[in-house]
C-alpha cells in the first residue's frame, strides 16, 4: 500500500512511542517522493531533546545537527558513482558494530541501495540477520526489483507515494525548462537536483535540438545519423547523468511514435512532435514500429554493462537503420 509522507510520519510516531521500531527498513518510492525526508524525520524523532506530540521540534541542537549532517550517529551513505562496492559496505559494517558515539541509538541510511553490487548486498545480509541492538538501518531505492530477494525478506518494506507528475512537471518548469521538455523529464527517474545540475552545463533547447536532429535522421533512414553521434551528440551529452537521460528521451519519443501509429488514446510525451511523428508513422509498418521500440528497450542494459556511450549509440543507430531499411 502506498502512503503519503504525513501518514507515514504519523505511523512511525506511533511505532516509536510504543518502542516497537524495527531494526531495518527499505523505503521504496519514486525520486522526490520523500524517502530521505522520512529517514531524517525518524532520526530527528529518535534524537530530538524536545519531542512534542510525537513530533521532533526541528529547532533543538540535535534536530539541527541532523539536518546539517553533523551528527555522527546519523550516517548517510550516498554515492555519486554508479555502484556501491563491497568495500564501502565493509566500512559501514565496522561502524555498525560500534555503539553510538553519544551513547544513544544510531541511524544508518544507504541511499539508492539498488546500486549495491551483489557482493556488497550479500555482505550486508549477515548484519541484517543478526542486528546489533540500538541500530536502525534504512535502505532507500527507486527500483524494488533491483534489491536482492534475500535482502528484501529481511527488511520491512515501506512504499512511499510518488509526487504526482503534474506537480513534478511544474517544479521542473520553474527551473526554466519549456513545457514539453518538462513533461518528458517529469516521467524520468531524475531528481530535481539532477536536472538543475544539467541546466547549469547545457542549454535545454540545444539538448532537444541535437537529440531530435539525430532521431529524425535515423527515421529518415539517413546514414549520416551514425556520424552525428560523434560530431554532435557526444559533445552535448557529456555528463554521465545526461548520458543516462538519453535512453529515456529516446524511449519517450519512440513510444510516442507507437501511440501515433496505433492511434492510441493517450497523451504524447513529446507533445510538440505530433506532426513530425505522424509523418514517419505513416511510412512505417506496425512491425517496424514495434521493432524500433524493442531495440531501444535493450539500450539501458548495454549501458549498465559498461559498454561505452558512443558504442551504445552507434550500435543503436545502426540497428534502428537496419529495421527501417
Amino acid at each position: 500500500m502506498k502512503a503519503s509522507l504525513e501518514t507515514l510520519e504519523q505511523h512511525f510516531a506511533t511505532v516509536i512511542a510504543a518502542n516497537e521500531l524495527s531494526h531495518a527498513y527499505l523505503f521504496v518510492g519514486a525520486t522526490n517522493s520523500g524517502k530521505m525526508t522520512l529517514a531524517q524525520w525518524i532520526a530527528q524523532r529518535l534524537f530530538c531533546t524536545n519531542v512534542k506530540d510525537g513530533q521532533p521540534c526541528g529547532e533543538c541542537a540535535e534536530c539541527r545537527r541532523i539536518e546539517e549532517g553533523n551528527n555522527p550517529d546519523y550516517l548517510v551513505i550516498q554515492r555519486a558513482t554508479r555502484t556501491i562496492g563491497v568495500d564501502e559496505i565493509r566500512g559501514l559494517k565496522q561502524e555498525l558494530s560500534k555503539s553510538g558515539l553519544e551513547g544513544r541509538q544510531r541511524v544508518f541510511v544507504i541511499q539508492d541501495a539498488d546500486k549495491m553490487t551483489p557482493a556488497a548486498a550479500n555482505s550486508l545480509l549477515k548484519f541484517l540477520e543478526e542486528p546489533a541492538s540500538q541500530v536502525v538501518i534504512i535502505l532507500t531505492t527507486t527500483r524494488l526489483a533491483r534489491i536482492l530477494p534475500t535482502i528484501q525478506s529481511r527488511l520491512q518494506i515501506v512504499t512511499l507515494q510518488s509526487p504526482t507528475l503534474a506537480t513534478r512537471e511544474q517544479a521542473i518548469q520553474q527551473l526554466g525548462v519549456d513545457s514539453t521538455f518538462s513533461h518528458v523529464l517529469s516521467t524520468t527517474q531524475f531528481s530535481l537536483e539532477d536536472i538543475q545540475g544539467w541546466l547549469e552545463q547545457v542549454d535545454a533547447v540545444q539538448l532537444q535540438q541535437t537529440f531530435w536532429r539525430w532521431l529524425t535522421q535515423i527515421l529518415a533512414r539517413k546514414d549520416s545519423a551514425f556520424t552525428l553521434v560523434q560530431t554532435q551528440i557526444l559533445s552535448t551529452f557529456k555528463e554521465q547523468k545526461l548520458q543516462q537521460l538519453l535512453p529515456d528521451l529516446l524511449l519517450a519519443a519512440l513510444s510516442d511514435l507507437f501511440t501515433v501509429k496505433f492511434a492510441l488514446n493517450r497523451p504524447l510525451n513529446w507533445t510538440n512532435q505530433q506532426e513530425n511523428l505522424q509523418q514517419f508513422a505513416n511510412q512505417f509498418s506496425t512491425q517496424q514500429v514495434t521493432a524500433l521500440l524493442e531495440i531501444v528497450l535493450g539500450l539501458r542494459s548495454m549501458q549498465e554493462a559498461n559498454v561505452s556511450f558512443q558504442n551504445v549509440l552507434e550500435y543503436t543507430t545502426l540497428r534502428l537503420l537496419v529495421v527501417l531499411a
Binding site: A305, E314, Y315, L318, L321, V322
Partner: peptide
C-alpha cells in the same frame, strides 16, 4: 562496402557487450 562496415561495427559492439556481460 558500406553494408560490410555497418555489419562489422554492429558485430564489434555486440562482442564488447557480450564480453562485458
Amino acid at each position: 562496402g558500406l553494408q560490410q562496415l555497418k555489419d562489422m561495427s554492429l558485430e564489434l559492439v555486440n562482442l564488447d557487450y557480450q564480453i562485458k556481460s
